[in-house]
Design a protein around this nucleic acid. Structure first.
Length: 273
DNA sequence: ATTCATGTTGTGAT
DNA sequence: TATCACAACATGAA
């Protein structure tokens, strides 16, 4: 799950804020029973990470860190799936299920160490600070840069591919090949796509707006989309060989708008990440 | 049946 | 010391 999906989850969890944990289940190896009787005191996010703070009248608070990685999912106030949840929390007013995610307790110090200025979804997001950090990343390819959580916390493979297409730049372009005056446009492209992602997902319209990610035809020029593993961690990367041609790098950098693809017969799944 | 994928973290080798 | 390769985790869709 990418950052915008975590923000949506945090909003869906608001109904449990201030509520007491009545029952705990799940196959996590963390000391889950310690949560019983505590009150959900805070709900925070940083990039793709969810932090829940559980307070107690006399004992210290417990901060949990949840990361959904590739396959994680959640359900709220729905019948439990056949499989065991990693963690299941029963409140007076409902139940939360977290599936196949990574959960760690005692995350207070870790949470404090994170910088909200690089969290693309945070109100404290600070593009000037990000631009400053980018100076140390000159030799990085854009496909790696756009996934770097220390610069763009919350950006994931969808954001990477779509933002690069909206900029019409090839993923294997090095940051140093982009004129410094255009760097803020790179930052802006990621920020804007994250917020579009957030809105589209809430309306179950995210897939409809994919231009290249898991697509076969470029919506702009009709070329066949190429899929190739690229960058440091060989993540799947989708490009239009015409619109994102390396030779375009001499052209002015422009952030193009996204048009929904109308003929897409794909049905939007509510449970999509 | 097999492959792939909205990701991170830890370990041991280089 | 830094970087790298690889494993581990976990599940549903194509």
């Amino acid at each position: 799950m990418e950052g915008p999906s975590i923000v949506i989850l945090s909003e869906e969890l608001q109904e449990f804020l201030g509520k007491k944990v009545l029952k705990v289940r799940g196959n996590t190896k963390q000391p889950k029973d310690d949560l019983k009787g505590r009150t959900l005191e805070r709900i925070d996010t940083w990039g793709k990470v969810l932090f829940l703070t559980f307070s107690h009248k006399t004992l210290p608070s417990i901060v949990t860190k949840t990361h959904f990685m590739m396959f994680g999912s959640y359900r709220i106030n729905e019948p439990r799936e056949n499989r065991d949840p990693r963690l299941e929390l029963t409140f007076k007013n409902g139940i939360v299920y977290f599936y196949s995610c990574s959960i760690k307790f005692g995350a207070e110090d870790y949470q404090k160490s994170l910088d909200p200025r690089v969290d693309v979804l945070s109100p404290d997001w600070d593009p000037d600070h990000v631009l400053m950090l980018m100076k140390k990343k000159q030799s990085t390819y854009l496909c790696d840069l756009f996934l770097d959580q220390s610069l763009f916390a919350g950006s994931g493979n969808i954001v990477k591919n779509e933002a690069l297409f909206n900029l019409r730049r090839h993923p294997m372009t090095k940051l140093s090949e982009i004129s410094k005056k255009d760097w803020s446009l790179l930052v802006h492209a990621i920020h804007e796509y994250c917020f579009n992602f957030y809105e589209w997902k809430k309306e179950f319209q995210l897939r409809r707006h994919w231009q290249v990610y898991r697509k076969s035809i470029c919506p702009v020029c009709g070329s066949k989309i190429q899929r190739k593993k690229m960058g440091k961690n060989e993540r799947a990367t989708f490009i239009c060989p015409h619109c994102q041609n390396e030779r375009n790098s001499k052209k002015e950098l422009i952030l193009f708008e996204v048009m929904p693809i109308e003929d897409s017969a794909e049905r939007e799944e509510r449970l999509d990440h």
